[in-house]
């Protein structure tokens, strides 16, 4: 109980602030990774979302999506997936052009990253952002995922197609997929990425 007592109200903010500070100040890649994972996990708890938003952790996570390290990308996107359920955080992410960044991660080679990206896109879908989150390339990508060998990917992509896209959209994308207007989104890049990372 005494340990819990440490972590209430203002203390929570201060603790999270200390984490953000360490993240920004440290030179150690390992510490950076640990702290990022901490912050991403704290994002799961809706009681932290206000503090995290005040500390501009949404921006911090978004910055991670263009990092070289796949770990940082995975953790950052995991954080976004957790945080974007909160409507205020969602709006911030949308304002910062998060959709494009997240969409780019659909091409990651790591399943966890791709799953987080789909989850984040779901959370980011609003009446005004729908056109962006369910655009042609994303839909085609989801259609491919929905045939994936991985159950988790298949399930999540199916939910995305069923719940976030209209029937016509899906049919259109299916049609395109059979034709010649395919996009490469969601197809993992080769092991040694030469060109820019997809979408970013």
């Amino acid at each position: 109980m005494s340990r819990r007592g440490r972590f209430s109200g203002p203390d929570r903010f201060e603790y999270l602030q200390a984490l953000v500070t360490e993240f920004q100040d440290t030179d150690s890649a390992e510490a950076k990774q640990q702290v990022l994972a901490n912050l991403a996990n704290f994002s799961y708890d809706p009681r932290n979302s206000d503090a995290l938003r005040r500390l501009q952790v949404t921006e911090l996570f978004l910055d991670m999506l263009t990092e070289e390290s796949e770990d940082l990308v995975e953790f950052g996107l995991g954080g976004l997936c957790n945080l974007s359920v909160d409507h205020e955080c969602r709006d911030e992410i949308l304002q910062s052009g998060g959709v494009a960044l997240v969409t780019g991660c659909l091409s990651s080679r790591r399943e966890e990253t791709v799953l987080s990206a789909i989850g984040t896109l779901m959370n980011l879908t609003t009446a005004s952002s729908r056109a962006q989150t369910t655009d042609r390339a994303v839909l085609q990508c989801m259609l491919r995922f929905s045939l994936s060998k991985s159950t988790r990917l298949r399930n999540l992509a199916t939910v995305f197609l069923q719940d976030y896209c209209s029937q016509e959209q899906v049919e259109q994308a299916q049609h395109e997929l059979q034709g010649h207007t395919q996009t490469a989104l969601g197809i993992p890049l080769p092991e040694d990425p030469v060109g820019g990372r997809g979408g970013t």
Partner: peptide, 27 residues
């Protein structure tokens, strides 16, 4: 949770259970 937070803004919150380690579980 958000709604409740707004409602009980003044009251001291129940402490977070999660420790600093990577333990994701949300209390």
């Amino acid at each position: 949770a958000k709604q409740n937070k707004v409602k009980a803004l003044d009251e001291p919150e129940e402490k977070i259970e999660r420790n600093a380690a990577e333990d994701s579980t949300c209390e």
